[in-house]
Design a protein around this nucleic acid. Structure first.
Lengths: 245, 245
DNA sequence: TATAATTAGTGTATTTTTTACAATATCCAC
DNA sequence: GTGGATATTGTAAAAAATACACTAATTATA
């Protein structure tokens, strides 16, 4: 049975769709490939799973190498195993996705930054391999997840405005929402802490700042969370940038 | 790069949790292992992925060998890749689950039947490897799915009673539901066809028989389906057998 | 053949949730 | 101090979810 790998062996990799939210846009991190096939093309970050490495560890390792961040939201999505998905041989890949606070990433030294870039999800095209399928599966998963967990906690900076939070939901769900109904609903969950602070340096009425209540967040993780929203009737699907200082 | 498999190779398998619904109980199909490790123990059916076989094909193959059934609901759930999950070497396994009409299975020749058995999900214990984790993940997935898709279509015989359908939901969700509210909700979806037939040979008032409207079912697959239910207040969690031949 | 046993079938009032919708407030720039 | 920009707030109507109990139809059996 030590010969199993010879007969049934496949190379096994992980690929990671790293989501961030910045300037009102949902973005993913792409990396410029350094080797064949598809050398120099922009692709999802990924790597082989080492022989004695837990699968999830491999995903964590890729994430940490790319972002320098630890203890980040990371979840398995789907495994892609078409026999000929990789031109050089049998490679099965397990897709993960992670959610990071993009501001934390920006503090990283520039080592990786030269070969990595953030791309708004609507502008991602022509990924190599079956990476487009992988991205699609991960985006679908995120859409499902946003109804079940307060994912803003993972994606937004520690202080944020309700408008930013609403734009996050609109970006993920690809709908536009009614402002009053959104606020009523999210506030009624008692998930947010009103910091009694305001935005500064904006050329209009400054918005109040909120943070997530970590205790409530844990409750929702175990007890469930239901954020069902219906697209607002107004046709204007404005996607305004809301970088608040 | 042809050496990839040598350096990073792992054996890759699929395991399948096959759900059926019978006599008011949700059951899964277990198989008696014919080889080491864990020879003669009851385990989830699974097999190696062949080198030039699509991953999903391997799952279909296992399912067909086990049940003789084609074109059955089958969906990937999760990949289990702890480095030491298999005592004999590095084996990564992709878990699938499928839903079958147990009555169809029963028509199969007895070849497989001798080494296979249906076990009510509440009575499954002591599975080898990490098969208990796999089962748990698949059951969780089924619980999620039942709120999103009319899975009864996959699990019930062509003609069924509303009580049988309710018991199916109760078995999957592990709650008890209010009869009147359940019927009101499911009927308002226009998903069921009233066959204007009744049960025969039962020692009580016979129930009407229904079938699924295949067209409506397809609509729900694409447009979505929302079956949110809350457990009924009555504490009695009766789990009565309802085999209505 | 009457009755006991068993499960099927049905409606309503109440509460909760969701939805649609628009005017005023606050800040900065000029 | 006016204009531009975004923030903030409430209510009425509609829809959905919930709690709840009696009558109907059949077979078994006394």
């Amino acid at each position: 049975m030590a010969k199993l790998q010879e007969f049934f062996g496949a190379a096994c990799t992980v690929d990671n769709v790293i989501f961030g939210f910045d300037e009102g846009d949902l973005k993913i991190l792409l990396i410029k490939r350094g080797e064949e096939p598809f050398s120099d093309e922009w692709a999802l970050p990924g790597h082989f799973v080492y022989p004695s490495e837990d699968l999830e560890n491999a995903a964590v390792r890729v994430l940490e190498e790319m972002t320098g961040l630890h203890n980040v939201f990371l979840e398995q999505v789907h495994t892609f195993g078409e026999a000929n998905r990789h031109p050089f041989g049998r490679v099965i890949t397990v897709a993960y996705f992670s959610l990071i606070k993009i501001a934390d990433y920006k503090l990283q030294p520039a080592g990786i930054a030269k070969k990595a870039k953030w791309v708004p999800i609507s502008e991602v095209t022509n990924l190599p391999f079956d990476h487009s399928d992988i991205l699609e599966a991960c985006f679908e998963m995120l859409k499902r997840l946003v109804r079940t967990r307060p994912v803003g906690f993972e994606l937004l900076p520690p202080k944020f405005t309700l408008t930013e939070l609403q734009h996050l939901y609109e970006s993920i769900l690809e709908v536009s929402l009614d402002k009053r109904n959104f606020r009523k609903k999210i506030l009624s969950m008692n998930l947010l802490i009103d910091l009694n602070e305001s935005q500064e340096g904006v050329a209009h009425r400054p918005a109040r700042l909120f943070s997530f209540d970590k205790g409530k967040y844990q409750e929702f993780l175990s007890d469930g969370f239901n954020f069902e929203v219906k697209e607002s009737k107004s046709k204007s699907r404005m996607r305004v940038s809301t970088s608040a200082s």
